[in-house]
Design a binder for these strands. Sequence first.
RNA 1: GGGCCCGUAGUUCAGUGGUUAGAACGAGCCGCUCAUAACGGUUAUGUCGCAGGUUCGAAUCCUGCCGGGCCUACCA
Length: 517
Amino acid sequence: MSGRGTYYVTTPIYYVNDVPHIGHAYTTLACDVLARFMRLDGRDVHFLTGTDEHGQKVEKAAAAAGLAPQAFTDKVSQSFRDLVKTMNFSPDNFIRTTEKRHYAACQALWEKLVEAGDIYLGKYAGWYSVRDEAYFVESETEVGSDNKRRAISSGAEVEWVEEPSYFFRLSTWGDRLLEFYEKNPRFIAPESRRNEVISFVKGGLQDLSVSRTSFSWGVPVPGDPKHIMYVWLDALTNYITECGYPDTGNPLWKYWPADLHMVGKDIIRFHCVFWPAFLMSAGIAPPQRVFAHGWWTNEGQKISKSLGNVIDPMELVDAYGLDPVRYFLLREVPFGNDGDLQRRALVGRLNGDLANAYGNLCQRVLSIVAKNCGGKVPAMGSISEVDMALLDRAKALLGIVRADLDDQAFHRALTSIWEVIADANRYVDAQAPWALAKTDPARRDTVLWVLAETIRRVTLLVQPFMPDSAGKILDQLAVPAGERAFAAFDRALVPDTVLPKPQGVFPRFVEPAKAAS
RNA sequence: GGGCCCGUAGUUCAGUGGUUAGAACGAGCCGCUCAUAACGGUUAUGUCGCAGGUUCGAAUCCUGCCGGGCCUACCA
C-alpha cells in the first residue's frame, strides 16, 4: 500500500492498428477490478486507459483506407471504447495520443530531456525495406541463397540505411536504474520479470533512437519538426499527460506517480527501463510499480492471426455472460503466469464455482428466508461458537483480499473468498435450518441471519470482480446503495428489513444443442 | 551460446529441510432434501522428471543429465 489516499492505475494505451482481443480485455479487466476495489475501499482512484494512435503503421493503414490519419484513428479507436462498455470497465478517462494536450506534454518532456543533456542528434541505422517502408532489426532479416538480405516477414529486400535521428543517452542510465530497482523492490512484478529486467540492464544499455524522419504521423520534435518523436516516448508520456503535465498545478497531478502500470509481458522493457529513465532524466518521479502479466493460449495453442484462433472477448461474453468471463479470467490462472483458455474449464468454473457454490448458496438461503421469515431479514438470537466461527472468517476476508490485491494476486483473493462460500455451504448442511423450522424457529432464524450476513460480506468483496451479479445479490439482501463500500463492511444486516423475492443470479451453463434442427 | 524460470495425484496447482506429501476439479461409495439434480461426508489414487551428493532427516539444498518455457533492445 502506498499509504496515500490516491490510487492511480493505468492500462497500456492500445495500438489502434489492431482489433481488440482477449489480451486487451484481460489487461483492462485486471485494472478495472483494482480500481473498483480501491474505490470501495475509500481511495481516491484514477483509472486510465486509451489508445496509441501514432506511428508509421497507422499512417499507412489510413492511407490504404483512403482516410486522413486522424479520421482513420477516430474510427478504429471506437472499437476499444466499445470494449470498455462490453466488459463493464470503469475507467475515469479514455486518453488518445492525438489529443492536443498530449502533444504539449510530449514536447514539454522532450525539452526537459534536452535540458538534462540527455538528447543529442546522431544517425539511426538499420536494415530498411523500401517496399515495406520499415526498418527491421537484424534478427528479423536473413540472407538468402542469392546473398541478398531480406525481411523474414515480408520477403522484401532490405538495405542498410542511415537517417538523422535524435538519441536519448540511455547508456548512461544503467547504474541509476539498477540502484532504483534495488531501492524499490516492488517496482517490477512478478519476481521473474524483475530478474529479467535487471539482467537486461546489467548487460549494458545502448543509446535509444527517439525520433524518426521517415514518416510524419506523430508528435513533432520541438525546434526540428522534420523529426517525429519515437512512438514509445510519445506513448509512455500519456500517463503524465493525463495528470496535466507539464502543469504540475493541475488538480490531477496529485495522482502522479502512478501506483501501478499494468502491462503485458511483451512491453515490460519500455515500462521498466526506458520510462523510468526518461522520467528521472526529466526530474519526474517514476511510477511505483509495473506488473507484467502473462498471455493466454487458446485450447493449448498459441494465439496468432495466421492460425486464425484469435479470441474475441465480445464473443466470449455473448456465449457465457460477462461476469462469468470476468471471474474465469482472474480465477483460473495465477496472475502473472500464462494461461490456457479452455472452454471446458470456463464452463467448469461457471457451473462449479458460480452456479453451484455461490449462486446456489444464495438461492438456498434466501428461499428459506422468503418462505419462513416472512420475506424479511431474520431475527438474530444468541450467537453460538460455530456461528461466530463463520462470521469471523467472513469478517477476516476484507484484510485478506486487500493484501492479495495489493500484490495483484487476483486468483488468491478469489480462492480465499470461495473458501468462505464453501464454509457457508457446510454450515447450512450442519445446521439444517429446514429441520430447525420444526424444532426451534428462533435458532433457525439465527442460523439464517448468520448465513445472510456471511453472504453480504462475501458479496461486498465480489463486487469489484463481478459488479452486476454482486449488485443483484446485494439487492436481494436489501443492502442500500450507500452501504456497499467497505466502510460499511461491519454494518451487519438489520433484522426485519423487508427483502425482495429471491432470484437466481448465476444460471448453470448448458451446452447449446449442437445440431438444433 | 549466455541468463532466468519450471517439471509434484487423471487434470490444474500448493507445499522450498522435519511427523504417514496436500487442495480443487474429475472418479467411486454414503448421507441430506432448503436449493440452480445443487449441498455435505467419505474412499482411492502419486518410484514429488532422472542420477548422484550434503544431512540424523531432501519434493525442499548442491552437481550433472533429460524435458518444457521465457529473455538476450528500438513494428507496437
